Structures are given as C-alpha cells and as structure tokens.
Simulated assay, not measured.
Amino acid sequence: MSPTPDATDAWMRRIRPHADASVRLVCFPHAGGSATYYHPLAHSLARIPGAEVLAVQYPGRQDRRREPFVDSVPLLADHVTAALNPLADRPLVLFGHSMGATLAYEVAHRLRARRPESEPRWLLVSGRRAPSRFREGTVHLRTDAQLVEELRRVGGTDPAFLDDPELLDTILPVIRNDYRAIESYRWTPAPPLTCPVTVLVGAQDPQTTLDEAAAWREHTSGPFALRDFPGGHFYLDVHRQGVADALSQALERVARPMETLGGNGR
C-alpha cells in the first residue's frame, strides 16, 4: 500500500525546506530525542544549493505526544521507509545519532529493497556501534532513579528536566520506550550497502568504542571513513560545526555529477 501525503507529513519535519531540492538530508534522532534536536545542526550546515534538510519525528513526543509509542526498531524502520518513499524521487543522504544511526541503517536497507536505485547516496552514523556488534542492554528495565542516573552519565538531556519531577514524568516514558527499542534490536545479516558510509564518534563515548565504530566498515562495499572527536556520547553538542562539515561534504559530493563518487556513483 502506498503511503499517503498525510503519513509522510506525520513522520517528517522539514527543518530547511526546498521546493525543488536536488538532494535531501534526513536526520534520525537518538533515544528520547525529537526532530527539533537537529535544528541547531541544520543551521550550522554550509549553504548547499538545492539541499533540503528533514528530521524524523517519532510518535509519542512533542506534536505526536498523544500517539502510541513504537518500541521496535524494525517497525519504526518500516514506518519511516513508507513515509520516505515519496521523497526518494531525489537523492537521499541519511544521518542518525545513537539509536538514530541504527534506524537510519535499517531504513537504508529497506529503501534499497523497494527499489535498488532508491538506496541512499550516503549514510552518516554517529555515536553508535556497528549493527553487527552486540552489547546486552538493560537500561529500559531499570527503576526511574537508575534511568535518570544513566541519563546524567551519557549527557544530552537538559539537567533542568532531570531535576524537575513534573518534567521527568513526561520524558521518562519516552526514553524508556526508546531504550527498549534499541536494546531489543538484533541485527539480521544482510548484503552490505553500496553507498559511502561515514562514522562519527566521541573518543570517550562509553556506549561505542572506536573498534565498534570501525566495524561499520563491514556494512558497505563503498567508501568508508571514520572520524573521532574529543568527548563522550553527545560530543556533537560541542563539535556541532565539525559534524556539520562532514554532512556538508557528503551533500556537496552527492549534489555533484555522479562521477564524483568514483566507482560508486549511481
């Protein structure tokens, strides 16, 4: 069944719209995150002619707060792929941080399965080990107090939220759901992507070692690059311009003629 425009609008937020985009950047938030997280990053991007920037809005938060959560990465990927399908008439570049990295990877495979020519032109992932590298996760099973302690440890959440009981009541169910989704995820072996993959990671990230980040190389037959930044899991909040530079370089390459991607151009 083809997705309706309403379905696409429900899942996608156009942070930097472009009526006649030549390339679309789609950003996938982390566990507990929302589309608005990417507003500062979008504004830090170099002005790439013809580039449109979108972010995925998961249900159960912000303007979708009354919708039921989705606690499965594969099911989320199915929904996002259906919503993206009408937008795949232009080259896509996918970027995801943490849980969003795994979700972007799954969406890339689903887009390719629908139409090989719809495989994203570039996949950029941040703060997440390769799908083939498994760690047991139990954060979603912890008490509220233990979950707050974990959020303080990894950063990325405004301390004002963590110190306010009323605000905590609104965000903890979202975060617990998303941790359940990513901690229950199991990679299904699949042929590697053919698009370039760029991995960004904090050198002191407790959730992703450099070896685990480098293992993303196994998931593409195309060009691969790994860049580490000083900092932990939310290094990108401090090094936003460095992340924006990596995204801008990918968008520029995709916006050029196909031969600029070497033997991988499509």
Score class of each variant (00 low, 15 high):
residue 134 F to W: 12
residue 56 V to L: 13
residue 252 E to C: 09
residue 230 P to A: 11
residue 265 G to P: 02
residue 230 P to W: 10
residue 141 L to F: 02
residue 222 G to E: 00
residue 52 E to P: 02
residue 48 I to L: 01
residue 201 V to C: 11
residue 181 A to V: 05
residue 73 V to T: 05
residue 212 E to D: 15
residue 261 L to T: 05
residue 62 Q to Y: 10
residue 190 A to E: 09
residue 5 P to S: 09
residue 111 L to T: 01
residue 56 V to G: 06
residue 260 T to F: 09
residue 85 N to M: 14
residue 114 R to Q: 13
residue 196 P to S: 09
residue 150 E to M: 03
residue 216 W to G: 01
residue 179 Y to I: 06
residue 11 W to K: 03
residue 67 E to C: 04
residue 89 D to N: 14
residue 151 L to H: 02
residue 50 G to L: 11
residue 173 P to Q: 10
residue 25 L to Y: 03
residue 98 S to D: 05
residue 79 H to D: 06
residue 156 G to R: 03
residue 198 T to R: 08
residue 240 R to F: 05
residue 148 V to I: 15
residue 69 F to D: 08
residue 179 Y to N: 02
residue 67 E to G: 06
residue 207 Q to P: 00
residue 221 S to W: 01
residue 229 F to P: 02
residue 107 V to I: 13
residue 79 H to Y: 13
residue 90 R to Q: 14
residue 142 R to S: 15
residue 43 H to A: 14
residue 97 H to I: 05
residue 174 V to W: 07
residue 70 V to P: 02
residue 239 H to K: 07
residue 81 T to H: 07
residue 139 V to H: 11
residue 238 V to F: 05
residue 25 L to T: 01
residue 112 R to P: 04
residue 224 F to M: 05
residue 153 R to L: 14
residue 185 Y to V: 04
residue 91 P to K: 04
residue 137 G to A: 08
residue 5 P to D: 05
residue 5 P to M: 13
residue 79 H to S: 12
residue 173 P to Y: 05
residue 258 M to W: 10
residue 38 Y to I: 05
residue 28 F to E: 03
residue 14 R to M: 06
residue 69 F to K: 09
residue 129 R to W: 02
residue 84 L to T: 00
residue 161 F to M: 14
residue 193 L to H: 05
residue 22 S to Y: 01
residue 76 L to R: 07
residue 84 L to Q: 01
residue 229 F to A: 07
residue 196 P to A: 11
residue 150 E to K: 04
residue 22 S to M: 07
